[in-house]
C-alpha cells in the first residue's frame, strides 16, 4: 500500500486501512467489509477508543470519497 497507509486483514470481516494523518489527535481508519459496507472510524483524541464510527453503504462511500477527492464538483 502507499505511504502512510497500513493494511490489516480481518478474517471473516474484510480489510482495515489505517491512514496516517501525521497527528496523534486526528486519526482515521476505514474497514472495508467483504459485503461492501465501509466502517469509518474517526479518532479525534489520543484515546484508542474511536470518537465516532460511521457505517457507509458502497454508494454512500463513493459519494463521500468523490467529495473528499474533489472529483465531485457541482455549483
Amino acid at each position: 500500500m502507499g505511504q502512510g497507509v497500513h493494511v490489516q486483514e480481518l478474517p471473516g470481516i474484510g480489510k482495515r486501512y489505517d491512514i496516517d494523518l501525521g497527528r496523534a489527535d486526528q486519526r482515521v481508519s476505514v474497514v472495508v467489509r467483504s459485503g461492501g459496507v465501509r466502517d469509518l472510524y474517526v479518532f479525534t483524541s489520543t484515546s484508542a477508543d474511536p470518537t465516532a464510527v460511521i457505517e457507509l453503504s458502497e454508494e454512500q462511500a463513493r459519494k463521500v470519497g468523490a467529495v473528499l477527492s474533489a472529483t465531485f464538483f457541482e455549483a
Binding site: L10, D18, A48
Partner: peptide
C-alpha cells in the same frame, strides 16, 4: 462495539 481497530480484534477473528 466499534472494536475493529483494537489490537486484539485480529486475534479474536483468527
Amino acid at each position: 462495539l466499534h472494536r475493529l481497530t483494537n489490537a486484539e480484534t485480529p486475534v479474536v477473528l483468527g
